[in-house]
Each structure stands twice: as C-alpha cells, then as structure tokens.
Computed example of a mutant assay.
Amino acid sequence: MTPRISDLQTRDFSQFAQYLNDHISDNGAEGQPLFQPIARVDCHFAGERAAGFRRALDVVPPTPGWRRAWVALTGKDRIVGHVDLRAHPAPYMAHRCLVGMGVHREWRRSGIGQRLLDVAIDWAKADHQMEWIDLQVIASNAVAIRLYERAGFTETGLIRDCFRVDGGQVDYLSMTLPVRRD
C-alpha cells in the first residue's frame, strides 16, 4: 500500500511526537549513521523542543517562527515519514526557509522521502514570498544527499568538524534549492 501525504494537523501532534521519538531513536544507533547532530543521550523529541515545534505550526507565514509539516500515513493512519519547512531564525531571511525530514526505518528507500520532499517544494513554489529552500545534512549521510540532489538541491558549503557527537567529529553540508527565479 502506498502511504498518502497529508498536512500535519495540530490535533494529531501527539501521534507525530511518538513517531518522531521512534524515528530519532535510530540516530547513530547500532551501526546506523547519524542523521541529526545529536548525541545518543539526547535523541528524544519532548519538552520545549516538541512544544516549540507544535507552537510554530500555528504561526502563519511569513510571520517569523512559522512552520509547516506534512506526514506520510499508511492505511491505519500510522505515520511513516515527515517533512517540514520552517522560517529561518535570522532576520531578513523571510524569502528563504529550512527543510527537515525523515522516514521510518521500515519505509526507507521506498520513494516516500521523494514524495514528501516534492510536497514541501510545491508548497514553497506556491508561496509567492518564498524563493529558496535551504538545508543542512550530515556530510556522511550519502543516501540523504543523493535524495536532495535528485530534487535539485546543490551544495553551498561544507563545515568540517562542525559538531563533536559521541566522541566523533561530524561534518555538516549546506545545500539549497531555488524555488522561484523572477
């Protein structure tokens, strides 16, 4: 069955938080690569981190602090992937947004990531203020980088040894996608 993509509704946020906690638990676990620059002990989605995400869903773009999210749902409304766009935190960047995403371990390499990314890109293209989508990705995450390149993102810079996570050095790659060229 092909999951359907839907806007994340605030009433479904507790289910989303459960999904994201499970998803983040894979970060660097048992031979899995890092996909977030977060130490294993901090791989949870709760507290102010979850509350801030939830609050941002109610902020209307282009108001600073906005966020939009979509989820991939199986037949029984089980979340198996997500993508979100959010405002840049820096002033004077309202024409750009940041993307974040993930896919449940059982659904990786199924095409859901591309479908989710396409929905977010289409939303940004429809927003007349939005001109760029930016992202940062762990430089060793080759699977994610290939997905972003297939979607048209290009590399804008690499910060070597950007993070020290669980005793290892982590490089961070920045990428961008123009969504409007007037």
Score class of each variant (00 low, 15 high):
79 I>A: 04
118 D>Y: 11
69 A>S: 14
129 Q>I: 13
123 W>I: 12
66 W>M: 06
70 W>F: 03
63 T>Q: 09
57 L>E: 07
72 A>N: 07
124 A>H: 06
88 H>I: 12
123 W>Q: 15
91 P>F: 07
108 R>Y: 13
99 V>Q: 02
96 R>A: 10
123 W>E: 15
117 L>F: 08
102 G>K: 12
60 V>M: 06
98 L>Y: 08
65 G>Y: 00
119 V>Y: 06
76 K>M: 02
87 A>K: 03
86 R>Q: 15
94 A>R: 15
52 G>H: 06
108 R>K: 15
76 K>H: 08
99 V>A: 08
95 H>N: 02
78 R>N: 07
52 G>N: 12
90 A>K: 09
104 H>C: 12
124 A>S: 15
129 Q>S: 06
124 A>E: 11
119 V>F: 06
94 A>I: 10
74 T>M: 13
63 T>I: 05
60 V>D: 04
90 A>M: 05
62 P>L: 00
76 K>Y: 00
89 P>I: 04
127 D>K: 07
63 T>C: 11
67 R>S: 02
67 R>F: 00
71 V>R: 05
75 G>C: 02
108 R>P: 14
114 Q>V: 12
57 L>F: 11
88 H>W: 05
58 D>T: 11
127 D>Y: 11
67 R>P: 02
55 R>G: 06
88 H>T: 10
84 D>R: 06
58 D>F: 01
